[in-house]
Design a protein around this nucleic acid. Structure first.
Length: 421
DNA sequence: TCTGGGGTCCTAGGACCC
DNA sequence: TCTGGGGTCCTAGGACCC
């Protein structure tokens, strides 16, 4: 009896979230689109069966969706984030050692249990999460995270639970698995491995350590060791401190003027600073980037520049001025821009930053902190964007992303609660 | 008209130091 | 005539994940 990792993942998560409060979607093909209503990022089982691909651009397939009665939704992160939190809270009851790996996945560590009781626990997890949140989940169980991920793939095809423990069983499974389906082996490396004659996960598992190290670096070697049931990737039950933070968006339509870009970048800095304060961090540097559409034949321009700040800060105003300065430096007129973004780097906890003589202090600092506080509270209370800098523009914003088919924020907005008759 | 957003880690190579 | 060797730090770019 050793320690086992459970990989719990929500089936077709975003599509399942849409169904929880809209049962009429049950049995129908459902897809959820990325921001800007761009491409497909989630599909119900029925949508997968129709051959709708992950990542396909939605605008090219409108007619097909209409013909097959596909229900199409803009993404609703307020809803998905809240549903995710409910699922994770439920899962945390099954192990004190849990790692929330993504919005729809969680690793749990269970120690010293027999195979039979592991499987029994996994079944209980499935039924509890379904009953309490309405979300269906699958559970993969193995000694390492990488094998638990593989087991999870199998669970989806079977009855929702799969244990990978026995060596022969593992080899059989890995022999049927392409290298690109192994957690940590991406498309690029899969193609390279195929060229070397390594086609299945089993082929990869059987390559010598130094070969793997040479061709796939240490990360690849860790993956291979994990395929051999040697745990190398630890459970991270406390998330490591964030190192960077991004706010970026594609525009609803192409943007050419500096004024519009300034509005967009201004609003992204404000959002980024808000996230920064919520995490209790300060940033030491700001980066701004700008790009044209890489799918269109129009002239292309990509630019990005990073500048250190005079002192680490989480103050919107202190981040705003340098960000807009960078934008003006990298902007070139005459291009149709598609996307811009702000990145905050060199993050550190608010308390332990180096003091600088350039930094506001005393009364001035107290006033600025109080201002940020009012900003955050107003935007929490009255909704995002209630209180902003004038630089992000007033009135209609032509650069705003499209979001034409969003469902209500059923669980996080008083105004959008579902009605029960 | 129309193709997402937000992260992490690793390595190579240059700058710099003694 | 002849021009070292070893170390650290930083950054950009590429790979990966969801």
């Amino acid at each position: 009896m050793r320690d086992f990792h459970l990989m719990v993942d929500c089936n077709n998560f975003y599509a399942s979230c849409e169904r929880v409060f809209n049962p009429g979607l049950e049995g129908k093909p459902v897809v959820v689109l990325s921001n800007n209503d761009g491409c497909v990022i989630a599909r119900s089982g029925e949508a997968k069966a129709l051959g709708i691909a992950m990542g396909e651009p939605a605008y090219k397939r409108e007619a097909f969706y209409a013909r097959h009665g596909v229900r199409v939704f803009s993404s609703n992160y307020a809803l998905y984030g809240d549903m995710s939190a409910r699922v994770m809270r439920t899962l945390s009851l099954f192990s004190a050692e849990a790692e929330v790996y993504s919005i729809d996945e969680c690793f749990l560590l269970l120690r010293g249990m027999s195979s039979a009781s592991l499987i029994e626990t996994a079944r209980e997890i499935r039924s509890t999460v379904k009953k309490w949140t309405g979300i269906p989940v699958g559970v993969g169980i193995a000694r390492t995270k990488t094998l638990a991920k593989a087991a999870n793939r199998l669970a989806k095809r079977g009855d929702g639970v799969r244990l990978l423990e026995d060596d022969e069983d593992i080899d059989r499974v890995l022999g049927d698995m392409e290298t690109g389906d192994v957690w940590g082996i991406g498309r690029r490396n899969a193609r390279y491995l195929a060229a070397c004659g390594v086609h299945t996960a089993l082929d990869l598992k059987r390559r010598p350590d130094d070969w793997v190290r040479r061709h796939l670096t240490v990360t690849g070697l860790r993956t291979v060791l994990e395929l051999r049931q040697t745990p190398c990737i630890a459970l991270e039950d406390a998330p490591p401190p964030a190192r960077s933070l991004v706010c970026s968006r594609s525009f609803g339509r192409r943007v050419e003027s500096l004024e519009s870009l300034e509005e967009a970048v201004s609003s992204y800095v404000q959002r980024a600073a808000e996230k920064l304060r919520r995490k209790g961090l300060v940033a030491g540097a700001v980066q701004v980037f700008l790009e044209t559409n890489r799918f269109q034949p129009d002239p292309k321009h990509e630019a990005s520049l990073c500048r250190a700040l005079p002192a680490p800060t989480a103050d919107t105003l202190a981040l705003h001025a340098p960000a807009l300065k960078i934008l003006r430096d990298i902007y070139k007129p005459g291009y149709k821009y598609q996307k811009a973004g702000v990145i905050l780097l060199d993050l550190a906890p608010t308390g332990q930053r180096q003091l600088s003589f350039l930094e506001p202090r005393g009364e001035e600092k107290r006033k600025r902190d109080a201002l940020m506080n009012v900003l955050d509270r107003a935007n929490t209370l009255f909704g995002r964007g209630a209180l902003t800098l004038a630089a992000s523009g007033v009135g209609k914003k032509e650069w705003h992303m499209r979001q034409e088919r969003r469902s209500p924020r059923y669980t996080t907005s008083w105004a959008e609660l579902p009605l029960v008759r």
